[in-house]
């Protein structure tokens, strides 16, 4: 399974054309305690880099953008009751949506783990 990253700090893990999506540990740390996640509706179709979901923390409200185009097939309903899972395991149990990916070629517009780590370091 390959993981790719956006400049807006989303991750996407891809296997057999199915993409799971969330925000990075770096983003979760920057947000502080997450208090609310507005998950997308199952069936929603979204284009790459469009708004997919929204997240609120004790500090800020922000949008979450789709790392790839596609259709949402499943959402992590556990986050409705316990949004703090995003702080506990942003890149694992804190996933937000599973999507049928429309175009694998879009992955080329994203960063690899190494590139993302370098990008985060450049943010200081």
């Amino acid at each position: 399974m390959e993981t790719y990253f956006t400049k807006e700090h989303e991750w996407v893990k891809v296997k057999d054309g199915v993409a799971s999506v969330g925000i990075t540990e770096y983003a979760a740390h920057q947000l502080g305690d997450v208090t609310f996640v507005e998950l997308p509706k199952v069936g929603k179709t979204v284009k790459q880099f469009e708004v997919l979901a929204a997240i609120e923390s004790v500090k800020a409200a922000s949008d979450i953008y789709a790392p790839v185009s596609g259709k949402v097939t499943q959402v992590n309903e556990a986050l409705d009751e316990r949004p703090e899972i995003v702080n506990e395991a942003a890149e694992d149990a804190g996933w937000m949506a599973i999507m049928d990916m429309a175009d694998p070629a879009e992955l080329q517009k994203l960063m690899t783990r190494e590139q993302y780590d370098e990008y985060v370091r450049s943010l200081g």
């Binding site: 502080g32 305690d33 208090t35 004790v58 500090k59 703090e84 702080n87």
Partner: peptide, 8 residues
């Protein structure tokens, strides 16, 4: 502003 986290 915070040490371990605002909610904790």
């Amino acid at each position: 502003i915070q040490y371990e986290g605002i909610i904790a």
